[in-house]
Nucleic acid binder design. Structure first.
Length: 198
DNA sequence: TATAAGATTTACT
DNA sequence: GTAAATCTTATAT
């Protein structure tokens, strides 16, 4: 097992990084409680050229400023006033690339995650960008936090993902982005891959 | 200053 | 299937 270092995030191909993140393990320690999960769904956002991104045409606001920082930190923002969405910031400083976490397969701290979710669903309770973040205890308090730090880190536990198990599909919830909404920048693992883990 | 809509989830009809 | 919840940003008064 090893932690992903900054070189992993500082690459120009944000779509490739989104694919590489599948099968990696995200670990959070919030309030002294550790939870983790296998990353099972991601979505790439290439700021300057991507209508679906908050940073389209390098639009910089108080909310999106962290996307312009050097890769390897978190970008967490509140959507619809309710849900905290977690992103991996990638690429060098000044290039607002980010990858949205859309789903995990729970590993450690299952009871903690169920408690945070306040529901007893047997399966699928960490699928969805808002719910996955909630299960991991991620809030806007973690905006800009180092992805190699004590609160959040990403580990490679040598889980091998065969390319045939990766499904590429159009991004979700961004119909307003016109042609850009059709790009196959959403990647997820086939559901049957982890039947023996959960 | 006010209004509208969004990388969504949940509950109710 | 439709609506409510309710923060941030953009556009219009």
């Amino acid at each position: 097992m090893k932690r992903l270092d900054q070189d992993f995030y500082i690459r120009s191909d944000v779509v490739q990084i989104a694919k590489d993140l599948l099968g990696k393990v995200i670990v959070t320690t919030i309030g002294g409680r550790l939870t983790s999960g296998i990353i099972s769904e991601t979505e790439a956002y290439a700021g300057p050229i991507d209508k679906a991104s908050h940073a389209y045409q390098n639009k910089k606001t108080n909310r999106t400023k962290n996307m312009f920082e050097t890769g390897g930190i978190a970008y967490v923002y509140l959507i619809y006033g309710i849900h905290h969405l977690f992103n991996f910031v990638t690429n060098v400083q000044g290039v607002p690339h980010a990858i949205l976490l859309r789903g995990i397969v729970p590993l450690d701290g299952l009871e903690i995650m169920q408690h945070r979710r306040k529901t007893n669903l047997n399966s699928g309770f960490t699928v969805g960008p808002g719910t996955a973040s909630q299960a991991l205890g991620i809030t806007t308090a973690l905006d800009g936090v180092d992805l190699q730090g004590d609160k959040i880190c990403v580990e490679d536990r040598n889980i091998v993902i065969p390319p045939t198990k990766i499904i590429a599909q159009p991004r979700i919830g961004v119909d307003y982005a016109g042609e850009h909404a059709k790009w196959l920048w959403n990647f997820k693992l086939e559901m049957d891959l982890f039947v023996n883990l959960s």
